[in-house]
């Protein structure tokens, strides 16, 4: 029955968007995690979405899935601070390559999508209940 597919689709979308929100939270939390410019520090993480059918019998019912988490290849942000314990010989400290503005935009977009899919689920629940009420006619 197709109305149950709506639940699955919205469910996969809620999971995917919450993973995206988790990535944003992790990036924002680590924005100031300094590391030595020679060593490997934290890198901004981004999730990659892909459409997947939720049921083999219904190829048109496409949910969404996070296929992988990629790390931003951009170079770390170098800050001149010779008194910092992690400063290198030239006095630079490396900070993660997290772009705060980009992360905030990502966060708003993810939370809007989450809300939309929660509404979709509530509409599907409503329709399902009304369909079941047909038995009481």
């Amino acid at each position: 029955m197709s109305i149950t597919h709506v639940f699955h689709i919205a469910g996969t979308a809620l999971t995917a968007q919450s993973m995206r929100l988790n990535a944003v939270a992790s990036n924002l939390a680590n924005v100031d995690s300094a590391h030595a410019s020679t060593g490997e520090g934290y890198r901004a993480k981004q999730v990659v979405f892909q459409a997947i059918p939720v049921a083999p019998a219904a190829p048109w019912a496409q949910g969404v899935r996070v296929t992988r988490v990629i790390e931003d290849p951009a170079p770390p942000r170098l800050v001149y601070d010779p008194r910092h314990p992690l400063a290198d010989a030239r006095g630079y400290v490396a900070y993660p390559n997290v772009d705060v503005v980009e992360e905030m935009v990502n966060m708003i977009s993810a939370s809007r999508s989450y809300q939309t899919n929660a509404e979709v689920m509530s509409t599907a629940k409503d329709l399902m209940q009304r369909t079941l009420a047909l038995l009481q006619a």
Partner: peptide, 19 residues
């Protein structure tokens, strides 16, 4: 009901590249 699922799929994939 099927159209509802198709539209839900569109909304779910609002951020999926190339969808």
């Amino acid at each position: 009901a099927r159209r509802q699922a198709v539209l839900a799929a569109n909304l779910a994939n609002a951020d999926t590249p190339n969808y």
